[in-house]
Every structure is written in structure tokens, then in C-alpha cells.
């Protein structure tokens, strides 16, 4: 997709202190299990108590991140709302499956069913902000946020004033166990701050939400430009290399022009080889901060945009950083989800 868009506001709830205060001053949060959970804010300052009482965790995380992003951008009603989520509200899905069994299909409370629908967060954002415009939700593993971003770029191209684009994901103990049965997580316990020292099959799980207010035009407030995105579905081992060259070329760049690559490298020996195409480029991994999940690329985008805006890498989150890059003009993100859905995103300074 050609055509730039600009990040005019953003917010993230993640396993790090990314939501409140000066996130750059916050130390890295280190967990003690292979399941990273979000640092959750006090939702009452964002959501009326009467609405909050029924909401499950995913809805609160998603809605609050969206609202904070709107606040940050200074826009109350966006021109469209587009999101991505791989799994939606897992807690509600799990709860409804169990209630069907426990109450033998009788006297069921509808709330978990309603909230388990993948577009529930979108509906809530629209409802709370009274946004009657275009509204869409993508649910496709490592392409969920990517398609939301593509849709947003199309909307801006079609003339939408601005778009609220975001992603949200949660992990539950039960779902962590389910995915452990197909080997997604490391069998040994690895604290997130030591993730990259444990190269072995599997990774650590995570969760989070990130939202962006996107505009076709830049302003003084712009964090960064999203210059382009490319997705690859189940590529052959050679494909990412040639696709990366082409992607950079389309934007008038070659590998040395990229100041920094944020890589989805997650110490998973099954799929890490794809990242070899980045050899020779300055790279920093990010999944020790957020864990692995369907929409982790949204966290990477938040992180990259923050760095571009501040022209600095938050050193306390990257102990592997040897020296600050001279400049952060072109920042590339390369992420894939268990080797199946691959994404390149290019961020540029304004």
C-alpha cells in the first residue's frame, strides 16, 4: 500500500509501564513466569462506573487504550474505528463455554457471549465516543493489526479525515496452557528480561493493546510517519530477503539507510532463522518487553513511533543496546507470528 500516514496520537497498555507518566523513566518490568501480563491502570478515570461494572478485562484494556489515544491526539470523535485482534476477549469465550456446560444450556447470562464477539471493543469505543462512521474488526492472527492498518490507509486515501486504528490481545492461564500443548512456549521458565539468552524451542507469551490516531497529513504533534507496510503469508525461507529489498527500494531506501530495525525475534529456535535477513543492520528485539501474541506488531509500532519522536532508544528497556543510534530517521519493523504471518513496517521521522 502506497501513501504515507501520520501518527497524531497513540497509547499502549502493555506488560511494561507504557500507559501513565513518562514511560521512558520507568524501569523494565521483569516477570517470573513465561506468561507476561499487562500493567493495568485505574479504569475509573476513563470509563463511567455504570459501564465498567459489566466489562471484562479485555474490553477495559481495549477501550481505555483507545480513549487515551483519543485524548493524546486531542480528537474526540474519529473518522473511523478499525481494530485487529487475534482472539478477542478470551475470558468471556472461556466463561461462556463453561457456563453452557455448568448450567446445561439453561439460564445463561448473555454478557460473556456478547463480550466474546470480536467486534465488542469496537462497538464500545463507537458507543462511548458516539462515532457513527466506518467501523471494522480484523481477526487474523499475525495479520489482524496489519489489515486494520491497511484498511486505515485505504480510508485515508478515500478521504477520511482521520482513523482510530488499534489492536488488543489478552492471555489467560487456560489459554496459555492450551497453546503450551502445541509447543508455543518454552518448557523451561524464562523471565522476560533474560529471554534473548535462552535460545530454544518456543517463546514466552504476552498481551497488550495499542491504539493510534492516524491522519493523512502531518502536524507539529506527529510522532512519526508510517511510510509503508508489506505482509507475507507463509513465505519460503528465501522470500523475506528479496521482499525486504523490494520493500526498501519502493521507498527509495537500501539496507544501510535503515537506522534501526525492531525485530520480533523471540528466542524461538523453531522460527528465528527468518530474522537472519537482517544481518548487518542495527537491530533491537522487543518481545522481552511485551511477550509473543497475535498483535505484538502494534506494540512494536508504538515503541518505534516513540523512539522516532524522541530520537532516542529508551535504554533501560534495552540492556543489549551498545550505543544510541546516531539518528532515527528510518526505523524498520520486521515481525512474524510463529513463522506464518510476516510483516514489514517502515516508520520515518517527520
Amino acid at each position: 500500500m502506497k501513501g504515507k500516514c501520520y501518527i497524531q496520537g497513540m497509547a499502549a497498555i502493555s506488560p511494561q509501564h507504557t500507559f501513565e507518566g513518562d514511560s521512558s523513566a520507568q524501569p523494565m518490568v521483569a516477570g517470573s513466569s513465561n506468561m507476561l501480563s499487562c500493567v493495568e491502570p485505574d479504569y475509573r478515570t476513563f470509563i463511567p462506573a455504570n459501564s465498567l461494572r459489566r466489562m471484562s478485562r479485555m474490553l477495559k484494556i481495549g477501550l481505555t487504550t483507545a480513549l487515551k489515544c483519543m485524548q493524546d491526539s486531542g480528537i474526540a470523535v474519529p473518522g473511523a474505528i478499525v481494530t485487529g485482534t487475534g482472539k478477542g476477549s478470551l475470558q468471556d469465550t472461556e466463561r461462556f463455554i463453561k457456563e453452557i456446560r455448568d448450567y446445561e444450556e439453561r439460564a445463561l447470562n448473555p454478557t460473556p457471549f456478547i463480550q466474546s464477539t470480536y467486534n465488542a471493543v469496537n462497538g464500545l469505543i463507537a458507543l462511548q465516543q458516539k462515532c457513527t462512521q466506518y467501523n471494522n474488526t480484523f481477526v487474523h492472527r499475525g495479520f489482524s493489526f496489519e489489515n486494520a492498518l491497511l484498511d486505515s490507509m485505504l480510508l485515508l486515501h478515500e478521504g477520511a479525515e482521520n482513523v482510530l486504528a488499534g489492536a488488543f490481545e489478552e492471555i489467560t492461564g487456560e489459554h496459555f496452557y492450551i497453546k503450551s500443548r502445541i509447543g508455543q512456549w518454552k518448557s523451561e521458565t524464562v523471565p522476560n528480561n533474560a529471554l534473548h539468552e535462552h535460545f530454544s524451542p518456543g517463546t514466552i507469551s504476552g498481551e497488550g493493546a495499542a491504539f493510534f490516531l492516524l491522519d493523512a497529513k502531518p502536524s507539529d504533534k506527529s510522532y512519526a510517519a508510517i511510510a509503508g507496510m508489506k505482509t507475507l503469508y507463509k513465505p519460503s525461507p528465501e522470500k523475506p530477503g528479496t521482499a525486504l529489498q523490494q520493500f526498501l527500494q519502493q521507498h527509495g531506501l537500501s539496507m544501510p539507510d535503515v537506522d534501526l530495525v525492531l525485530t520480533g525475534s523471540n528466542a524461538d529456535s523453531n522460527y528465528d532463522f527468518y530474522y537472519d535477513v537482517l544481518d548487518g543492520m542495527l537491530q533491537l528485539p522487543f518481545k522481552h518487553l511485551c511477550g509473543e501474541y497475535d498483535t505484538a506488531s502494534a506494540f512494536a509500532l508504538w515503541l518505534g513511533a516513540k523512539m522516532v519522536k524522541e530520537q532516542q532508544v529508551p535504554a533501560q528497556w534495552f540492556p543489549m543496546l551498545q550505543q544510541q543510534p546516531a539518528q532515527l530517521k528510518n526505523v524498520l519493523i520486521y515481525n512474524h507470528f510463529f513463522g506464518e504471518q510476516h510483516t514489514f513496517m517502515l516508520l520515518q521521522s517527520i
Partner: peptide
């Protein structure tokens, strides 16, 4: 300040 979803939940309460 309850709404129609609350009314469904109250019917569940009566049933349970």
C-alpha cells in the same frame, strides 16, 4: 440506570 442487558441478567437471576 439499568439497560436491556441487565434485564436479561435479572431474568437469569430469577431462573437460577
Amino acid at each position: 440506570g439499568l439497560d436491556s442487558i441487565d434485564s436479561l441478567e435479572l431474568m437469569v437471576l430469577l431462573e437460577r
